[in-house]
């Protein structure tokens, strides 16, 4: 592993490769303690619902701002490009950041991204100077188009949001990694257990963003710690180049020199 294995996104550096969401925790205190235990340096927060009529979500937002980590606002719950663009503009004002995790949801059952709306919103927001982190499926062509528009990182799903299924299509995620070896690729959505996180980090993914797997765990703080360790383990394993599976046993202790061996 390189000495300074730091993640670079839009000119910023991160020591931790875990980003976490701020929804559905038992309490704001549990959220704060989980963030500390996860050692993450950036959290994502949604605006859609909390916005209310008169910016009355202010007390929760100022709580988030005061956590001492970078804030990545998101457009969760937006269903059209137009809605997502308006939410991103509001987020820029509230959190004084041009970073945006862009979600345009296209299908109610799987909360699958509407990739057409995503492309449209990305084009508009990049023109306005936003640093767009697009939540996408694992489609290579969509990835290509997003990069052409100027995205400097991509966020493909592993499985539907909140499903905790782990990697639904390992083939597609490997293909994406192989096609874009130099683009930061962050797995967003679908991770349920630390073992899933290890698996995608071993594939060479750059980082993971997750929410439900921590916030709805029996003990969110302990699970945040577990994910932090898993992501470090997966990252080390990626550099260490895991052995390949074999079809037959290969003794780990050399047998030459043993006086007798069972003949078969």
């Amino acid at each position: 592993m390189p000495d300074a294995d730091r993640l670079r996104l839009y000119g910023s550096e991160f020591g931790s490769r875990l980003f976490i969401g701020t929804a559905r925790y038992p309490s704001p205190l549990a959220l704060e303690e989980s963030i500390r235990a996860s050692e993450c340096e950036m959290v994502t927060v949604s605006l859609r619902r909390e916005a209310g009529g008169t910016r009355s979500g202010e007390s929760f937002w100022s709580f988030i701002r005061n956590l001492g980590v970078k804030v990545l606002p998101n457009t969760a719950g937006c269903r059209t490009a137009k809605e997502a663009i308006a939410t991103a503009q509001m987020a820029r004002e509230i959190f004084a950041t041009n970073w945006i995790k862009l979600e345009v949801i296209g299908e109610e059952d799987t909360l699958q991204p509407d990739v057409f709306g995503l492309i449209e919103a990305t084009r508009a927001l990049i023109r306005e100077g936003f640093y767009v982190l697009p939540y996408m499926t694992d489609d290579l062509v969509v990835a290509e188009k997003l990069l052409d528009l100027g995205c400097q990182a991509l966020m493909p799903w592993a499985a539907p949001i909140g499903s905790g299924r782990g990697v639904n299509n390992p083939f597609a995620l490997r293909a994406l990694r192989a096609h874009f070896p130099d683009t930061p690729l962050i797995i967003d959505a679908g991770i349920g257990a630390p073992s899933h996180a290890v698996a995608v980090m071993e594939m060479g993914y750059d980082a993971i963003l997750l929410n439900t797997a921590i916030s709805r765990a029996g003990d969110p703080v302990e699970m945040a710690r577990a994910f932090s360790l898993a992501i470090k383990a997966g990252r080390s394993a990626f550099f260490a180049k895991p052995m390949l599976p074999r079809d037959m046993a290969e003794p780990s202790t050399p047998i030459i020199g043993r006086p007798f061996d069972q003949l078969s």
């Binding site: 909390e50 916005a51 209310g52 009529g53 009355s56 007390s59 929760f60």
Partner: peptide, 9 residues
Amino acid sequence: MIENEERAR
């Protein structure tokens, strides 16, 4: 349950 302090809307 919404993290928001507006009333009666």
